[in-house]
Amino acid sequence: MMLIYQLAALFLMLNIVAGMARVLRGPTTADRLLAVQLFGTTGTAILILFSLQTGNKAFQDLALIFALLAGILGVTFTRYGQAWYKQGATDPESTKVAAKEK
């Protein structure tokens, strides 16, 4: 059983590595935020697997914190990120995308 937990955790870690590409490439802030959401969900799953593997119950509490954190961060970002773009400068990359599609 230990082998299965470890293999699944390694696989989820590979998912995080792949998601890192989306964080770095963008193109818009919303995309990066989505990839951070992926980190949160995947991290929660990894923590559940670790708690099974080591039998440490504290990891489940940490998984709970990760689950909570994802929601709060998303709300904060859409609120403040909006303000950041509304006042003055527009997002150069998102306008580029919009121009390409027209």
Partner: peptide, 17 residues
């Protein structure tokens, strides 16, 4: 959380154009 965030991100992306 993800249901809430899906709506928030979708709306803010629309507002950003």
């Amino acid at each position: 959380a993800s249901a809430t965030i899906a709506h928030l991100i979708g709306r803010s992306a629309l507002e950003q154009g």
